[in-house]
Every structure is written in structure tokens, then in C-alpha cells.
């Protein structure tokens, strides 16, 4: 690891990784994680479906489950589906798609920019709104949905509250300085910037070690989880003071089918496309 490379690699080698921790603490060379670590830190496959007992929405009592767990049958309920829902339950994919479409309808937010500088805002998330409570009576049958966007052109967060029944935008709220969790696109963009940055030296070196000679050139080679970083909410050095007004992201980084590489010391400023470090 060089002076510039701040990514710290994780334990390797048998012995529960003690050797590595020593190397890390001592600032020694980067070494990569062990099979043991890999075994315990690998993600569950997103598409993994290791049991086939899926009941319908009404559930399937007596589904076999995994009997070797020794603890009786497990019933499974599928996720609700379809655009027409009411009340307080999970959002469906159809509702989320429809809410986004309504929120962006009629060229709304056309002047906004996404994380790549493209036209239109960066979509972040959708959630069911709190029941309307204007009169103290909670009317919760109607599905009102909040769609969150980030406008990189103006560095501001935009919330569109959508009434799914009427297909209209009920209200729009905007604010600066608020930084909810990053989207998958933003996370990927942050990793791309980090890989190409001088501060990504350590990450690239650790990747090469982890893959026995591979070159890290794309976020696709990593399993990533983005962490928004807002200096209004936590301590940070002066060099990162813009984070908060700007949209900044840290990363949990893992080689696909491999070890963690610790990049949490590095902060990618997606608004001005620079990389900084916490210490």
C-alpha cells in the first residue's frame, strides 16, 4: 500500500486473519483476505432461492420448508403485486413504477441533472407516505407515495408526493443539505470515480492481490454498498466540508466472490466528482 492508497485490505491467511490485522495496523503491505473470511462475509445471492416452498398470496400451509432445521413447517407469502392497492402494506413494483412516472410526468424536473450530468433528476427511492393527518383523522386507504430525486444541477433533494389513485402530484418539496442513502447508480458512479482516482491506488492494489493479478477497471468487478456522507451529521476534516451541500458517498467494497477491501476512509464527492479522505 502506498502513502496515497488509503484502502485497507482485510485479513488473509488462516489463523483468523491475525497476521493481516497486524499488517493493517502496522501500515504494512496490503494482504488479502482468507478463505475463512470469504466464507463468512459473502453476500447471500440476491437471486438465491434456496427453498422452493412458495405459497400464493393466500399462503400455502404445510409447505415443506427445510425439515432439517428440525422446527416445523414454514409458510411463505409472496409479495403483493399490481398497480391497484389500498391501505398500509408493501409497495408493489407496479406502484413504484407508476409513482415515478407520475412524478416525472409533463416534463417535471426537466432542468434537473442526474449523477452523470444527464438531463432529468437522479431517482433515489420511493416510500409510502404517512397517512394524511390534517384534521387529526388519519385517512389511510388512499395510497400516497413519496418519490425522492436528487438534482445534481442545483444540488438539492426533491420530494414528489404522488396520489396514486388520481395519478397526480400532490406536492413538491425541495431542500439543500439533506443527503438520503445513495441509489445503486450513484454507488456505482462513486466506485467508478474512486477506481480512476489517485486515492484509488490502494483499492486497485488490493483488488489485484485478491484476484491474483487481476486489474480493477470497473465497478462491475465489485460488490458495493453506498453510504451517504454529510458533514452536518458527523465529524469530517476541512477538506470534506462541502459534503452535505454536495452529495458525497462512501463505499463498503467487496471483491465479487472475494474479500472485503476497506474503502470507508475515502469519500467520493459526486457533485464535483472528486475523491477525498477522512484521515
Amino acid at each position: 500500500m502506498t502513502d496515497q492508497g488509503e484502502s485497507r485490505s482485510l485479513p488473509q491467511k488462516g489463523g483468523l486473519g491475525r497476521g493481516i490485522k497486524r499488517a493493517l495496523w502496522g501500515g504494512g503491505t496490503a494482504v488479502v483476505a482468507t478463505a475463512v473470511m470469504i466464507g463468512i462475509t459473502l453476500p447471500r445471492d440476491a437471486s438465491g432461492d434456496d427453498h422452493s416452498t412458495t405459497g400464493g398470496p393466500a399462503a400455502a400451509p404445510g409447505a415443506p420448508g427445510q425439515q432439517d432445521a428440525g422446527s416445523g413447517d414454514v409458510t411463505e407469502n409472496e409479495a403483493p403485486e399490481g398497480a391497484h392497492q389500498s391501505g398500509r402494506g408493501p409497495l408493489t413494483k407496479a406502484e413504484v413504477d407508476r409513482a415515478k412516472s407520475i412524478a416525472l410526468g409533463r416534463d417535471a424536473l426537466r432542468s434537473a441533472q442526474d449523477v452523470d450530468g444527464g438531463r432529468g433528476p437522479e431517482y433515489l427511492d420511493t416510500d409510502l407516505a404517512e397517512p394524511a393527518d390534517a384534521t387529526g383523522a388519519r385517512t389511510d386507504r388512499a395510497r400516497r407515495v413519496e418519490v425522492l430525486f436528487y438534482d445534481y444541477g442545483h444540488d438539492r433533494l426533491v420530494k414528489k408526493t404522488v396520489d396514486l389513485a388520481s395519478g397526480t402530484v400532490e406536492r413538491t418539496d425541495t431542500a439543500t443539505g439533506l443527503q438520503p442513502p445513495p441509489s445503486a447508480d450513484e454507488t456505482r458512479e462513486a466506485a467508478s470515480l474512486l477506481i480512476g482516482d489517485a486515492l484509488g491506488t490502494g483499492l486497485r492494489a488490493d483488488f489485484t492481490a485478491a484476484t491474483k493479478g487481476g486489474d480493477l477497471t470497473s465497478p462491475d468487478q465489485l460488490r458495493l454498498r453506498g453510504i451517504s456522507f454529510n458533514t452536518a451529521e458527523q465529524s469530517a476534516p476541512a477538506g470534506l466540508a462541502k459534503c452535505g451541500r454536495h452529495r458525497c458517498v462512501r463505499l463498503f467494497t467487496q471483491v465479487k466472490d472475494g474479500p472485503w477491501i476497506d474503502t470507508t476512509n475515502l469519500v467520493v464527492d459526486l457533485s464535483d466528482r472528486t475523491v477525498g479522505r477522512i484521515h
Binding site: A59, S71, D73, T75, E76, A79, P90, L91, T126
Partner: peptide
């Protein structure tokens, strides 16, 4: 064990 597992679509 013995329970019900329910799925939901997670937008993000």
C-alpha cells in the same frame, strides 16, 4: 421455524 415468511418489493 414454524412461522411465516413474507416478501416485499424493495424499491431501492
Amino acid at each position: 421455524p414454524g412461522g411465516t415468511i413474507s416478501a416485499a418489493y424493495i424499491p431501492q
